[in-house]
Structure formats: structure tokens, C-alpha cells
Design a protein around this nucleic acid. Sequence first.
DNA 1: CTTTTCACAGTCGCGCGGATGGGA
DNA 2: TCCCATCCGCGCGACTGTGAAAAG
Length: 584
Amino acid sequence: MPGEGSGSALSVDDEKVSPILCEDELSSGGRYLLEGLGSNRYFMMGSTQQTQEGSSPCSLFPYTSQSGGVYAGSDGSRYTASLHYGSVLPSASFCQSLCAGRGDFGAGYQFGHGSGNGYHAYQGSGSGIGSMALSGAGLRAQVYLCNRPLWLKFHRHQTEMIITKQGRRMFPFLSFNITGLSLTTHYNVFVEIVLADPNHWRFQGGKWVTCGKADNNMQGNKIYVHPESPNTGAHWMRQEISFGKLKLTNNKGANTNAAQMIVLQSLHKYQPRLHIVEVSDDGIESTGRDPKTQIFTFPENQFIAVTAYQNTDITQLKIDHNPFAKGFRDNYDSMYTVSERERLTPSPSDSPRTQQIVPGARYTVQPFLQDQFVNNLTQSRLYNAERTVPQTNGMLSPQVEDVGAAQRWLVTSVQQTNGSKLELTAYEGDYSSSLLPYSFKSLPLQGTHSLGYYPDAAFASVTAGWGSRGSYPRKVASGLPWSPRPSPTDFTDELVADKDKSREGNTFNQSSAWMESTPSLKLDSAEPSIYSVVCKRRRVSLSESGAESSPTVKCEDPSVSENFNKDSSSNSKAIGYYAFYAGS
DNA sequence: CTTTTCACAGTCGCGCGGATGGGA
DNA sequence: TCCCATCCGCGCGACTGTGAAAAG
């Protein structure tokens, strides 16, 4: 694998610049001049400091001001200045509307380079789908971050990614859906991870603070090419594109599996970027003056590379959501040992077996744009307890997270013969008005399509990210007495932010507006209040002494907790969830 | 004191081979 | 009886965070 910026077959146009600048961002001084910063490229966003301090939802979209000049690496990197955030840049007025109305771009940020003037201002459709023409091709590619809710969860606490000498997989991993590509044109799809800011970071006083300048002389591979590259647009659009096998390392001299590893430096903040490069049929990149490249950046993918976790909230999130860390879940037994007979309705989310019967990529349907592995988490594992770290430690304010997490996308699995595989549906559209205070115009809910999609797609995303495991041939849903559906936790996840609010208010009125139409959500909405009383708990760790501000209070009444798990997580949620779909 | 490295135990799932069942 | 597809169990390697030790 080529080293940084040396991908022979991968090149990015470095000439295009976005003419669109967001006034807010400009005035914020969130841009850096990076001349002389060395060979590294920086993903330039509004400074983290600013976004931490600022409560404006606009901070969620700090890239709105970016133009092509942000990658002004002094090494003449081939990727310099190829970022064109302006493609979906809201105008200044849109920024204002964001701040005022808590609007959202949606799950898909669309960047890319166009033909000079082809920067498409946000249309205000609320679809969250930006659009940008490929140079010369006239095709608009759109990229959706599939597991965005989970990313937001981590991002809220400032995501940390472990790096080791032998390489560590990312979690959450990067997973995208792409639309708008030419069906027959070949593309290389790869991820590049660049410095997000010029700072060195350290975890101090329960939060991340800058600590001097970043070491910008880091050498090593910064690119991970998707193993299926190159491939046709039809291929890329057929299913989720996951980078679950991407590994992060701090071993500069790593030779083995170098293609699978990206070399990072500990305590630096990084920004992954997705590149889609059009290539000729023989796999050679398009040549000429105007290579057809698009780059997509999701700010919630930012993370700080660490050799050991610093923030216990991040650790807990990893344990809770990463199946490989299941062994560290403290009440794993009680969570999953409820006999099948005791269940009124089996829940797709409460059995470890569930993960083994995940159909995965066997079904080529588009996975529910969902948390990866988030489904296996029962509601007993919430973060209601007092925190060691300010909740706004991350880039997002709770409010901002509300915006992002509450946002839902469902990519239906309709296998259309015309090749347009993806039919995007704003799943929550019907009730967004009551739940979400910001204006968000959703695409129409496709009732029959959506319902028909759920049974198999519910778990597709669970395994899709882990590469080839999707071909698991057995124990598919057909053998189950129930039809798997998106886990109720999906909704609950979205409501995490609401939980934080409700734990103080202890009121159910908050979501009453949509209780009537969404029974399952009603149940989930009620959970925070229940749990804030019954089961304030955190990760149980021997090392976590009482001296720390994070309490180690376990469920005061295990039976209550267990019953809750059983009744609510399995039964109520499943029933409620089912009722929701059946009744919708 | 901070950061990195390493061994560890638990979990997961791929891949293999054998068992099972249905159809020709 | 044979063939094929599916199911099942097992072993191994990959993967995880932990916690102590080492390194800086």
C-alpha cells in the first residue's frame, strides 16, 4: 500500500476550490493557515475549542466554510485542496436557520469536486442529501454514513480510537452507502485519515485539552483502499461499504498488512475522509487535468488516537456496542440468559444468539442505516449516571447530538431493476415534527416498502461492517418464530440525549406528543426516567474507585433490573416495536 | 507523571468435517 | 443408494478491554 499521498492509482484533483464560504465560519476564525506545518495534511474545521465552547448547532457543521485550500500541505500532497465542502454549503442564511431552527444536513454530507461552479447550495429540502456533480460526468454522488447515530454517541464524548503496533480496528468503523454513481463506471473507494487539527491533545481533568503542536512529521500510510476496489458504481451502490477491517497503528515501520493499516500518532486528532475516484475499466485512475474525484467528510468521524483509553465513557461505549468486547459487559449473564419460554415475544436485541444468526451480507438488501452492533445492547446499559466528564466534552453539545441522533434514515432494500438501488426514506418523518424541534422535511414514509424491508435488513448492518462474515449461511430468520426487526434500541439510541434531559425532569410528557402514534417509542421514551431511578450504573471496574466522580452504583435491586430487562427490553419493546410497524 | 507495551481471559465467527434430510 | 443442500459442533485465530509493568 502506498504511503501517504503516494497512492499511485489514486489521485485527487487539487485544483478545485469552493467559492462558497459560510460567513459564520469565516468570522469564527475556524480556519487555519497551515503553511509550514510540514508534510501532514490537515483537515481543517472549526477548531475543537470553539465547537466545544459554542453551543450553536452550527458547530456541528464546521466544515461549511471549507474551500479547497484547506489541504494546503506543504508537501505538495496529491490530495491537497481537494476538499469542497462548499458543495453542500448552506448559505449564510442557512447557517442561521440551522442555528435557529436546529436544522440538519441529514445523514449524508455530500462533498466533492465539481466543475468549478457546480457547488450546490443546500436546497433546504431537509433530505440531508447533498448533491454534487462529478466533473464531466454529470452524476451526483451522495454518501451516507450508515452508523451515524453510533458515531454521534461517541462523538459526543470525543471519540477515541486505540492504536497498537499490530493494528487495531476502528470502532465504530466507517460504513457508508453511496448513491448517484454511474452504474458501469469503475471507481476506487478508499478512506484517508488526516489530522483534524494542528494540536497535540491530552486528557486532563476529565476532558480533552490541547497540548502544544501536533507532530506533523508522522510518516506512514494514511490511506486504506477498500478491498473491493476498483469496482463499478453499481457494485458500490448495491450494498453498504464498510471499512471494518481497517486497522489503526502507531507502528511506522509496519510492513505486514500495511495495506490494511493506517499509521497514526497517539494523542492526535484525526478526521477520516472517504474518497471516490473514478477509474478506467482497467483500474487505472482517470488521467488528465480533471480527475473525477469526490471526497466526503463526516465530522462525527473525528477521533483522537490513543494507546489506552482515557475517557471511561468512551470505554463503556465501546464495551457496550462492540461485540468483541462483550466479555467485559458486567451483567452479560443476566442480560442474555432469559429462557426463550419466558419471552412473550423474542427480541432481536436481547440474545447473543441473535448475532450469530445475523444474515449479514447474505442479504444484499441495504442494511438499515443503523448503529453497528448497537442492537445487542439492552436498555440496562444507559448512561444516566453522573459522569466523570462533562457531557459536552466532545464536539457536540447535547442539543446538537439531539439533532443528529434523532435523525433517522432508512434505506429501503427495494431491488430495483433500473439499477437505482437506494430509495431513501426519512423514516421518522411522520413524527419528526413532534419530536424534533427543528425543521426537517423528510422524505415520505414508504410504508409498504419499509415494512417489507425490515425483516431481513434489521441485522444486516450488524455484520456488514465486519467484512466477509456476511455469508453466514445458516440460521437465518426463516427459522425463527419471529420476524426480526430493527431493534427497539435503535430508537432508544436516538433518544439517549432525551434521556439525559428526562433524567432531570423525570417526566414522560416530553415525548407525549408522539406516544399516541408510536407505542414502541412511548415505551422507550419512558425508560430514561425509570432507569435514572432504578439503575443508575456505570461500568463496574475494580480500578474505578469511589474517589472518581463516576459512581459505581449498580442496580440497587437486581430483580428489578432483570425484570426490566426482560420485560421491557424483550417483551415490551418488541411488542411495542412491532405494534408500531403494524399500526403504521 | 504520562504514555506505551504486553500478557491475559473472554468472546466471536470462520472454516472444516460429519450428520441429517430430502429428492432423484 | 446416491447426490446435494443444510445443519451442527468443534478448533483455531482474531478480536476486545484490562491492568500491570516498562519506557520515556
